[in-house]
Amino acid sequence: MRRFMKLSRKTLGLLIIVMMLLLSGGPGWARTLTVSQPNQQIYQEANFASTPLGAVPQGAKVNLIRQEGEWYKVDYQGTIGWLHRQAVPEAAPAKMDLSKMLFGGPVKETGSDEVALAGKGFTPEVEAGFRQKNPGLAYAQVDKVETFGVDQAQLQKFVSEGGLNP
């Protein structure tokens, strides 16, 4: 019985450590990202269609709270919202290194989990390979079309003059 009590205390201690680790959110998430692209916004939800909460200037540092697919939940100067990965395309996937604390060994990536695949697939590098194989395609024209746009003030004037809904 005494031995049972002793082991139970050990078990309880381990349980407390595990629970603390789980509740802490993990040490690996205390991470800062630097926005490297211009004209980026923080959104209320992980969706471009949701309400923009404000602009994040190029070079700004944001605190990463968590990641869901291509979106990062971030804290930027007290504004908490979602930033798309396009703002920080070079950021490595977030990883947590709990193994050293539990087992003392190095982390081994599986190499096939979805986090490791973020930013893979049809990427700018694949586009470059495709363009090399198909030099006759009009990518310069596509780049030109992507510069076409209308600023908000012009659009509002157009909408207003046409009796359209704002």
Partner: peptide, 14 residues
């Protein structure tokens, strides 16, 4: 149990 829970959060463990 801890490994499973951490695994759900996308953590790689050795």
């Amino acid at each position: 149990m801890a490994c499973l829970l951490w695994g759900c959060s996308g953590v790689s463990l050795d």
